[in-house]
Design a protein around this nucleic acid. Sequence first.
DNA 1: AACGTACACTTAT
DNA 2: ATAAGTGTACGTT
Length: 143
Amino acid sequence: MALISGACRFNLWWVHVDWSDTSVHRVSFSKSGEEGPVPPALRAYCAGTLRETLALKSVATEDTAPYAVVYRAVCRIPYGKTATYGDIAMECNTSPRAIGMAMSRNPTPLVVPCHRVVAKNGLGGYTPDVSIKHALITMEQKD
DNA sequence: AACGTACACTTAT
DNA sequence: ATAAGTGTACGTT
């Protein structure tokens, strides 16, 4: 199976996706890009027409992946809602710091909705830019 | 309100 | 094998 590389636009950003027909391998953001093939569900999500958690498989949730357990817990966060690092940590029987590390190393943002994980007191951080996180949360919470 | 420490885990030396 | 870093949380000052 060949890897497909494509991109679609979200807000003011481009979402680059490396994926096969069955699972997503890598998702990244940049300010410029070119239209290309992306999973239909992901495209719909970026367009704001898919109002639920992506059901795509990600390499991040494979059993062999380091933070698989954490990523699965993150996927459990319902669309439009958020959880704190502490919440996830409790679910995984781990510490908030491990969650932060897992999120920062998340190979597939969006597919694993790490943007729904926020700090207890506010937004928390995000790479490459918190504005993406904010835009995503805003989009999910708007009617 | 600010500071320090503890939490679990990964990556680099 | 050891040390330090990480998008935190909580208790104490």
